[in-house]
Design a protein around this nucleic acid. Structure first.
Lengths: 209, 209
DNA sequence: CTTTTTATAACATTTTGGTGTTATGTCATT
DNA sequence: AATGACATAACACCAAAATGTTATAAAAAG
């Protein structure tokens, strides 16, 4: 069982110290750095190269998201755990996009925190199942295509797909072995069915935006 | 503590019966239907209206994904748990897009299965942290914007954003209080920097496609 | 003093809107 | 089996609008 090296970025002194004590007092874990703001973390973490970084959301100056994004860009293998009191969708997605792989709440018990750190280090994404639901919901929202697209014939969908790839009319005509006039006709019908007046609007509907 | 009604769709007779026995033998759970294929499930589940449906992936005839998608469309509040042996990204994303909110492996222990059912019913998304990592990775993949966009000046980004929304040049000119000729110029510069020759291609780069 | 933003002007190309035609296949009803 | 109604898919022409290219250059910002 290897030792997991951990760094902490957390502005609250008590919480920071408590986590440091917890980690250093547990076998298999070592806290090799603890910082009270993002700027200090950004400066020192590149030298320490911890396996796992626990990051607070709200920090004085640069916030935790930005700090993760910068470090993750430089050290893609470093694992980041967002540690926060927030359960909003926005905050969750921002953290994940920035490169956090774990997202747990501060009220998490010491034992669970240690488990989560190990889990993260071993390739999991520890998060509560409530938070997982938010992430899943985001997927499901993205998935459903615009119902107006269903009204298109299969040929029209094909044309729309070509439009979305930026082909000129004459290129579409060539690709589908039809005349440019036919392409125009189809495009016209597509616009009518989608209630749009330009290629860009049609493509936006196609991609559900 | 209310009783959670569960339906099962699973073609393997032994597994199906074992799950039925487990659920009916546990306080707070009731298995109100068990089906050996998707077609039977689709027919009966609308009358049973269970709180939770456990769905196998591979079924003879229609697969479990399709079955979930159809039922979820009709009953958005019904909760679906994918129960499978597969850990591939494709299968996971297909299940989530179809409307499954939980995704657990068949090797999961009876006790954990019951916990997962309750968790799902109470608004969580039970999944192993390995599977959560796949979902999170998908997020992170999507997030990184095209670096070529960074070469654009802030004004150019503004113009590109307007382009992406489908505005005509003259509308963009009106929105930004500049002349249409200036819009033309900016668009031209944007195209050069992004190495594209059309609005659609530029917008596709903007949205990272 | 370089980059960015703004502006003109002339031009070619592409796209869009409007109004047609022809052929084919499906489907429900006669 | 024949009919009519309707959808799809293909092709055509004209005019107008929008987009893309090129060249040139002057404020504004840093």
């Amino acid at each position: 069982m290897d030792i997991i090296s951990v760094a902490i970025v957390e502005d609250n002194h008590d919480i920071r110290q408590a986590m440091e004590l917890l980690i250093n007092g547990s076998e298999g874990y070592a806290c090799i750095g603890a910082f009270n703001n993002a700027e200090n973390g950004l400066e020192k973490i590149p030298q320490l190269l911890p396996n796992v970084v626990l990051m607070d959301f709200n920090l004085p100056g640069m916030n935790g998201i930005e700090c993760i994004a910068r470090l993750k860009g430089e050290f893609p293998d470093m694992q980041f755990m967002m540690l926060t009191v927030y359960e909003d969708d926005d905050k969750i997605f921002m953290a994940l996009e920035a490169g956090a792989s774990g997202y747990i709440l501060k009220k998490t018990s010491p034992g669970e925190l240690l488990d989560a750190i190990r889990d993260l280090h071993e390739g999991g994404s520890p998060m509560s199942s409530q938070i997982a639901r938010r992430v899943v919901a985001y997927f499901q929202k993205q998935a459903k295509p615009n119902p107006a697209l269903e009204a298109l014939t299969s040929r029209e969908k094909e044309i729309l797909d070509q439009l979305s790839k930026g082909f000129l009319y004459k290129e579409i005509a060539g690709n589908l072995f039809i005349s440019i006039e036919t392409v125009r006709r189809h495009v016209h019908n597509i616009y009518e069915k989608l209630h749009v007046r330009s290629r860009t609007d049609a493509v936006n509907k196609y991609f559900n935006r």
